[in-house]
Nucleic acid binder design. Structure first.
Length: 261
DNA sequence: ATGGTAGCTGTGCTA
């Protein structure tokens, strides 16, 4: 089973790119998208016509928004991260995907950017991460096989940035941000890409500005965190970096996870 | 210190 996460930076701007990508020979079984920047009503649902994907969106006007697409049976889709009834930002969706030998709860997330830090936006980011940790604890407690994936807006360590020193005071790289991310790992979750690739220099985001792609001035902020049972059936995790060099790209590229499931 | 780019239904905000 192939699962992919991708921050598309706007479904309207990326319609044709995503349309064609879903019809590629190696299209994923499950696609977890962030920053659809669309309401549910305005989302062009014909993007999956004839593909076999079922599509669920959790959108809002102008910003944020996540989507979950699956060619496998998809059950019990829920939206919103528990823990704050007043949170109106569309950043979280869950669904259970049925595989050949078992199922996996796929938790798709668009974690707040948090800049400028310090400030209310950074407070919101840290509070959101605490809610995510609580959700992970609950899933572990009920022994549900699951994975957290999406745009975490977290640079885990120095290997994950071309210029690590440029991010030490940024909300994506502050010590408090990294500590909150590490708390997820110490629960017993596996960071899929880092487990398979120890070397630095692998990125999932390059800013549109200042020729970041041409200089490979990137950061790795799109991740898969796997519960123990799912980590046991991982066979691959890779970054589709070439997508950043194509016509009219998103500033993020897809990250792939392959499971024997 | 600044500004560089993209995507939103915008005249600034978010990233």
């Amino acid at each position: 089973m192939k699962i992919v996460t991708w921050n598309i930076n706007g479904i309207k701007a990326r319609y044709q790119t995503v349309h064609d990508w879903l019809r590629a020979e190696d299209a994923p079984d499950v696609a977890v998208l962030q920053e659809i920047k669309s309401t549910d009503d305005a989302f062009p649902r014909d993007i999956v016509d004839g593909t076999g994907y079922t599509l669920h969106t959790h959108g809002q006007k102008g910003f944020n928004g996540v989507a979950l697409l699956s060619k496998r049976p998809l059950e019990d889709v829920t939206i919103g991260l528990p823990g704050d009834a007043d949170d109106e930002q569309a950043r979280y969706i869950e669904g259970t995907v049925i595989g050949d030998t078992g199922s996996v709860r796929v938790c798709g997330l668009y974690l707040p950017n948090g800049n400028p830090a310090p400030g209310p936006k950074y407070d919101y980011k840290l509070a959101w991460m605490a809610r995510l940790e609580a959700r992970a604890r609950a899933l572990l407690a009920e022994e549900t096989p699951f994975l957290l994936t999406g745009d975490f807006n977290v640079i885990p360590d120095a290997r994950d940035a071309k210029r690590p020193e440029a991010w030490t005071k940024d909300a994506l790289g502050l010590p408090q941000t990294r500590a909150a991310f590490r708390r997820l790992l110490t629960l017993g979750l596996t960071e899929a890409f880092r487990t398979r690739t120890a070397a630095p220099g692998h990125y999932s985001f390059w800013d549109y500005q200042a020729g970041a792609w041409d200089r490979n001035d990137g950061i790795r902020i799109d991740h898969f965190l796997l519960s123990p049972a799912i980590a046991d059936c991982m066979t691959d995790c890779s970054i589709q970096a070439d997508m950043r060099g194509r016509e009219k790209p998103s500033d993020h590229v897809p990250v792939w996870l392959t499971l024997d499931l």
